[in-house]
Design a binder for these strands. Structure first.
Length: 616
RNA sequence: GCCGGCGUAGCUCAGUGGUAGAGCAACUGAUUCGUAAUCAGUAGGUCAACGGUUCAAAUCCGUUCGUCGGCUCCA
């Protein structure tokens, strides 16, 4: 069960690193204030692998500035100034920071409890801080300033714009070097790099940012994933033969009225692409706007979600309790105007295809349905051996519906989690969708950044808005409960995560080129074609490398392209009607000498969906 | 959208005011070779775009676009 629990328990080593990094943040702040007088401080916490500090300043930091800051830190640490803890009263702290002109620090003091406020001083530098720190600045030895970026005070884009500087710090020189090496290695697994090197995807600049185009090899993998998921949905092949889905197919544009009814126009308009006709433009219908309505937006909107379409199809005909639960799925392509700064390769795009489904059921059924979806999610992530976190996200400030309904929904999700992932899930308060609580599956990319994969959301909002009903066993009209879920999340994001997880060396069943035949000299070209034809007959994706290169070059090229199997045929093989096989993971396979045995091995690997990783 | 970095050939990069370069990839030819790069040749660029400064701009300035790292937001 590779659900990975999120733990707050810190090991002794974590504790030491925490102190070093926290202290390094202070040292950096001191250096920055020394080099750029007048710079005010915000927060400067330790984080995974390092630390950062936010500065309130007109100054922006370029690379030379960062180098200068690092140099200054080196200079300051040599003073071995002792970290001293100074408890102060709230009034005292307020007075001090106000006098120092540290407006944000003073603001933060306001939120703290009197009697629990401490300052830490090292040399001439003093900062509001709960600690703990290392003994003296001399202990901060192995650090590096990484990069700078912008941020906002308290993460609020309406508040002060701050300059953030990131650094990393470790216990030893070797650890620091290993960390920097790790970053280098991670870059090689970056799906944007591999996507280009392996000719999987492209983002044509002319087409527009965030719009992924699949090249033949990428399109092949995408289609394999779709075939696999389609089958699982229709046949319940994820361990629930009774919980099968019915396919739908819905258009990409809906009338603006539909987005008004669904609430997207009110709650999601910033992310929507609207569709205008020339008639509308010419008649001046476009542009005039009012806050909540649809005026001036044109007659159609490109779908950012599939749910309204599915709801409309639920509403075709009268549903009885005997029909419930209704499970509709669609590989629906949606379009969202994501803000320019958030786009990220395949992991965050503007057009993507969700493996989307909506389950409509009675209040008695939804818990079992969620359990089924949960198992579906585990099944797909486990198929590839991903590590993932599971999070329960509860009601936030912006939400609709009664407390009772929310409590019932959250309790239901919690019961499923207690049964399926006891002690392993974590709760993020206030992170629910505005219409209901949800369970999210979170997966990391090669650099450890977290991305939401699967999501299971309860929705009491749309059934209301679209007037959905079913007739119960007393002949009474009832409102169904709606579950919105995506298992892969989106094919794009999943593909990106898959590329990084496997470093481009895909499981055989997905590999766009499964086996390549390498004749040693031109004399074996014909024999190589024969072998290739046999492999193709067996349903394998096979090619021949008949370039007039030496074997070493052909091997190198095959390995670089991460082809799972390379078949070498020279004079010896042709003579004895055999082959020699080189596997991406296992090197030379001495026991496989014929096309038939290779076929058998590959067939087994494909049927079992074997998912291997390169050992680092 | 905000803050900062970057944009030279398909890819990786050199070129800091005076005639656009290298390696790899591609193509052509030679080579016919036994497990990670054979040799030679050819072709390929309005130096992201637009505007400005200058006798002269890849180079300096401005704007826009794209991209990278963050912030915010999200599948």
């Amino acid at each position: 069960m590779p659900i990975v629990a999120k733990t707050n328990v810190r090991s002794e080593r974590d504790e030491r690193l925490y102190r070093i990094r926290h202290s390094a943040a202070h040292l950096m702040a001191e250096a920055v204030q020394a080099l750029f007088p007048g710079t005010k401080l915000a927060f400067g916490p330790p984080i995974d692998d390092g630390f950062y500090y936010d500065f309130d300043t007109e100054q922006t930091f370029n690379e030379d500035d960062l180098k200068a800051i690092e140099k200054k830190m080196e200079e300051l640490r040599k003073k071995k100034a002792e970290f001293v803890c100074i408890p102060v009263s709230k009034a005292e702290a307020l007075k001090r920071f106000t006098e120092m002109g540290e407006k944000l620090k003073a603001e933060h003091v306001e939120t703290l409890e009197d009697g629990k406020i401490t300052l830490y001083q090292d040399g001439d530098f003093i900062d509001l801080c709960a600690g703990p720190h290392v003994e003296n600045t001399g202990e901060i030895k192995h650090f590096k300033i990484m990069h700078s970026s912008g941020s906002y005070w308290r993460g609020d884009e309406k508040r002060e714009r701050l300059q953030r500087i990131y650094g990393t710090a470790w216990e030893s020189r070797d650890e620091l070097k290993a960390y920097l090496k790790r970053l280098e290695e991670a870059k090689k697994r970056d799906h944007r790099v591999l996507g280009r090197e392996l000719s999987l995807v492209d983002f044509p600049e002319l087409a527009g940012p965030g719009l992924p185009f699949y090249l033949p090899k990428g399109a092949h993998i995408l289609q394999e994933l779709k075939n696999w998921m389609w089958k699982l949905h229709e046949q319940g092949g994820y361990g629930h033969l009774d919980k099968v889905y019915q396919p739908l197919n819905t258009p990409h544009i809906l009338k603006t009225d539909a987005w008004h009814t669904s609430g997207h126009l009110e709650n999601y308009r910033d992310a929507m692409f609207m569709v205008y006709s020339l008639d509308e433009l010419e008649s001046g219908m476009i542009g005039g706007d009012n806050e909540s309505g649809k005026e001036g937006l044109g007659n159609y909107g490109l779908k950012p979600m599939n749910c309204p379409g599915h709801v409309m199809l639920y509403n075709v005909g009268t549903k009885s309790y005997r029909d419930m639960p209704v499970r509709f799925f669609e590989f629906g392509t949606v379009y969202r105007y994501e803000r320019a700064g958030v786009l990220h390769g395949l992991l965050r795009v503007r057009s993507f295809t969700q493996d989307d489904a909506h389950i409509f059921c009675t209040p008695e059924q939804y818990e079992a349905e969620i359990e089924g979806v949960f198992d579906f999610c585990c099944h797909i992530w486990d198929t590839f051996g991903f590590d993932y976190h599971v999070a329960l996200k509860t009601r936030g400030e912006k939400s609709m519906g009664s407390d009772a309904v929310w409590e019932m929904a959250e309790a239901g999700l919690r019961r499923v989690l207690e049964r399926r992932a006891p002690g392993k899930y974590y709760v993020e308060e206030g992170d629910a969708a505005f219409y209901g609580p949800k369970i999210d599956f979170v997966v990391s990319d090669s650099l450890g950044r977290n991305w939401q994969g699967s999501t299971i959301q309860l929705d009491f909002n749309l059934p209301e808005r679209f007037g959905m009903e079913y007739v119960d066993d007393h002949g009474e009209r009832q409102r169904p409960v709606m579950i919105h879920r995506a298992i892969l999340g989106s094919f794009e994001r999943f593909f990106g995560l898959l590329i990084e997880e496997f470093g481009g060396a895909f499981p055989l069943w997905l590999a766009p080129e499964q086996v390549r035949v390498l004749p040693i000299t031109d004399d074996q070209n014909e024999y190589a074609q024969q072998v290739c034809a046999e492999l193709k007959h067996a349903g394998l994706l096979a090619t021949v490398d008949d370039t007039s290169e030496k074997l070493g070059k052909k091997i190198r090229s095959g390995k670089t392209q991460k082809i799972p199997y390379l078949v070498v045929v020279g004079a010896q093989e042709m003579e004895s009607n055999t082959i020699t096989v080189e596997s991406y993971f296992d090197g030379k396979l001495e026991d496989i000498r014929t096309v038939n045995t290779l076929e058998a091995r590959m067939r087994l690997e494909i049927d079992n969906m074997v998912a291997r990783r390169r050992e680092e």
